[in-house]
Nucleic acid binder design. Structure first.
Length: 288
DNA sequence: GATACGTGGCT
DNA sequence: TAGCCAAGTAT
């Protein structure tokens, strides 16, 4: 296997974006919050929301002491609002089980609500400097191309972690950089749509390039249509509640513009089931 | 393992 | 413009 670590490290040292969570002294809590926000939301949309969030809640305990409603409202238009609820739950768990300190062990991080294989290792590596493989969608695409000669990765699997682990240098600090560099490369050079191979530090060792860029992107499912969907209806209801003075509104006033009554009721029921809203006496509100 | 889950920018 | 895409997780 070619040594990808050395060129990745060199490239990252001179090309890494100046992102807030890479600033020296950025807290583990800040890293955790940033990773929650970055779960499926683009970097540029996260940055201003992250700053506002940390100003309001500088510690897990501060967030845990506030109502879930405050978290869901502050989440604004970042998307997938259940992440706000999960982040609040994680803060409560950190306060109650870890004395208010973001845990360092992957096992403990995985036990927190809303944290999976990616986020647990991202916090352990980027906040605490420990040596673990960190694999996100960018890294999976980079590895699929460089090592397998495929244009897109296959389904996520535990094997991804083993593959990345095999590329990491022994040195802890360098291993962390390789993890970050693989993600960064996928985000800005080895992109899904129009990769900039002329700027790639590992192009010389890339199996996809050597194979003349075959299109192996078969079998990819299309994202469901959003316009007119139940998800859009949920979003409209939540947006109305976020903007309401006390985060509550009469059920009849919520999303009255939703033409499909059955769809509105479905959306309300599913939001209640998810814990994102509460319903009682004809009133809808964000969770207290 | 497939599916549900927001929102907005880009092509 | 309709579709693609974005630092995933839980069920």
């Amino acid at each position: 296997m070619p040594d990808l670590a050395a060129p990745l490290i060199a490239w990252f040292r001179s090309n890494a974006r100046d992102l807030p969570w890479r600033a020296p002294g950025f807290s583990a809590w800040g890293t955790l919050v940033s990773e929650f926000m970055l779960q499926q939301t683009p970097v540029n949309r996260v940055i201003p929301h992250l700053a506002a969030w940390l100003e309001r809640w500088p510690t897990p305990t501060a967030l845990a002491g506030d109502a879930p409603a405050a978290a869901v409202a502050q989440w604004a238009n970042l998307g997938y609002p259940r992440r706000a609820l999960w982040l609040h739950r994680a803060a409560v768990e950190i306060r109650d089980r870890h004395e208010g300190i973001v845990p360092r062990r992957v096992e403990d991080l995985l036990a927190l609500t809303g944290i999976g294989d990616y986020t647990a290792r991202a916090v352990a590596v980027f906040a605490y400097g420990d040596r673990h493989p960190v694999v996100d969608t960018n890294t999976r695409r980079v590895l699929a191309r460089a090592l397998e000669g495929r244009s897109q990765p296959g389904a996520p699997s535990k094997g991804d972690l083993a593959t990345m682990a095999a590329l990491l240098p022994e040195d802890q600090a360098e291993a962390a950089i390789v993890n970050a560099a693989a993600m960064e490369l996928g985000a800005v050079v080895c992109t899904a749509r129009a990769p900039r191979c002329e700027a790639c530090p590992i192009a010389h060792a890339c199996a996809w390039r050597a194979a003349s860029y075959p299109d192996t992107g078969d079998g990819r499912r299309r994202q469901a249509r959003y316009e007119g969907s139940d998800r859009q209806a949920r979003g409209a209801i939540l947006r109305a509640l976020r903007h309401a003075p006390t985060h509550e509104l009469p059920e009849e006033a919520v999303a009255s513009d939703l033409a499909d009554r059955a769809q509105r009721d479905r959306a309300i029921d599913s939001l209640v089931a998810d814990g994102l809203i509460e319903a009682s006496g004809g009133t809808l509100r964000l969770p207290r």
